[in-house]
Design a protein around this nucleic acid. Sequence first.
DNA 1: GTTGGCAGTCGGTAGAATCGAGTGCTAACA
DNA 2: TGTTAGCACTCGATTCTACCGACTGCCAAC
Lengths: 350, 350
Amino acid sequence: MARRANTTTKPSPQDLDARRATILEAVVVEHIKTAQPVGSSSVAATVDLAVSPATVRAEMVTLEREGYLVQPHTSAGRVPTDKGYRYFVDHLKSGALGSAQQHQVKEFFANVRGEVEDVLEQTSTLLTQLTSYTSVVVGAGHSHSSILSVQLVNLDARHQLLVSVFSDGSVVKHSIIASFDVTHEEVAEASKQLNALLINTTLETRVQVPSRSDHVATLVREAVSVLHAEKPTTDGEQVFIGGSSRVAEVFQGVETVRKVLSILEQELLVVSLVQDILDQGLSVAIGSENGYEPLSACAVIVAQVTIDGEPAGAVGLLGPTRMKYREALAAAQVVSEHLTRRFGGDESHA
Amino acid sequence: MARRANTTTKPSPQDLDARRATILEAVVVEHIKTAQPVGSSSVAATVDLAVSPATVRAEMVTLEREGYLVQPHTSAGRVPTDKGYRYFVDHLKSGALGSAQQHQVKEFFANVRGEVEDVLEQTSTLLTQLTSYTSVVVGAGHSHSSILSVQLVNLDARHQLLVSVFSDGSVVKHSIIASFDVTHEEVAEASKQLNALLINTTLETRVQVPSRSDHVATLVREAVSVLHAEKPTTDGEQVFIGGSSRVAEVFQGVETVRKVLSILEQELLVVSLVQDILDQGLSVAIGSENGYEPLSACAVIVAQVTIDGEPAGAVGLLGPTRMKYREALAAAQVVSEHLTRRFGGDESHA
DNA sequence: GTTGGCAGTCGGTAGAATCGAGTGCTAACA
DNA sequence: TGTTAGCACTCGATTCTACCGACTGCCAAC
């Protein structure tokens, strides 16, 4: 399934001449390593093409004309464009994780305990440690889960708490403010009716609420409406971001750092960013591909997590366009597989 | 209560000579405004002391000797030290919020809806908008709250979910993995027993668990132990950080930005930072006062939120030592009061 | 005690000179 | 035709110098 990095459909990967491809790759690799423009002689040296710098130069002119490379200025080496990185990534043979890191991942998943949320949060830390990039872990919403139990609890006569448990193990609470004093008996009765009404439904199911105007019926109506009003938010998606300080390590300009951070602050935006990338069928979005101008200096890697074959979240990594794609892809891949295994088909989630 | 900014007890505010105090204040104000070292003539101009720069100079020498000011280098103006800021803050007449901002706060609290967590999170955004600094909102843990209800829910035969509702309106879930298949009847029975056992206790109460070895008793024991194991974490404290991107606006060095961000990433650390400051009886910690070396370029402002007179959280602002103390203090103060009012004595929390 | 005057310090900036990495072009070569 | 060596050229980066200007500290006069 992951023979090579998942690719695009749109910039049909019109294969480059073999030599040109080699040169492009060399430029990308070198630039990722050094962050400097790379020149023809350096390429000629690293690559086993047995050609002179002059020839490389000629090819680089072509590559530049075709938009894979740019010169920051005359008399500098070349730097890959987004298109250049794209080609590189599309033709990247997926590598494995270093064995130390593989060990770390195994170790981690063998030892994490706690609720799903805790695991996801810690996973984001793991990802950031593995790669030195900022990580994003998105947990799916529960809009498709069915309700296992709802319970109304009296905080005091005027305040009730509706606690709903979903089949995916998530628990949601909603405050209800009554316009009249509510007795414990009424709460208990409302709770009972709510259970009868809602168990095994999903948030998308429309239910028939009682139209009477007594206390209990009013409570029930209120509870159902407040529960179903859940949707407009991110429909329960959870976002965990790890290592935002890595942003400051990886970009040199304070202004870039600021822009990227302020994107990361907006969880809804992060969710849709990840979702957009997945929707495009990509596993990597490079520079402008991600659609957010402030992130044009970034590349984003995503890998989906599935439960019973259904998409149920994703892990992501955010770095500079000159990120270490192979390692980062491997890390995202491996971690998402582990998550899929833990929460997916089998029942062994601890 | 807030006639002047809450002060220290330790660096006994040995009052400075009135003129020196004026000069120090002028330096601080000017430096906060310009971020530049400020020179004697500039001070002489801004201040109504009717003295010449030379005199100011003489005083500044004293102030420097006493540790309130430093020169970045010979032939530069002076910059306040932490001690200088401390004096300034201790003698700051607390100002009011600008009327536009006052309006914004009122508006905000008139319109926020949703659960406590949502309100706190949005409050952190509000604070950051009011001040342009990074904000921290800490919600108290529920270790002192009593349990209103516990419920065990069957996810499947081997997995149960313990859902606990506390008197402060918080809801906590815990997964339980059974080593045997559990029937719905057993879960219901365990649930009943748990309620009998735990209602009106707090997490600190030790309870007598059944010692029998049947399924129900085992479930009950497991549930109680998992619930009481809660403590080691931050005992349920919630942290919301708003505007981390402001860090990049406010500090120029990427390295500083990185260090500060990586502190902010560690929620426990943030909680104890805030707690430490409150424990010292401070409302502002300047530079090294906060005890974290990476934050030595920062000042932290905190204001407590109380419920029924009991400390129940705090709001904080983090900026550079040259932050706009008056405005930031006012903002923190006002917001914390609004929170206190909302969640505190009266019953109007919507 | 205050002040004007003055020499001295030192960072910051502007300009010139230099360096060197890397290019594009061209002519020769296989 | 493709490849290569050679070469002139470009242009950012670095270094150096000179200089300016913002301050200070000190001192003598008020």
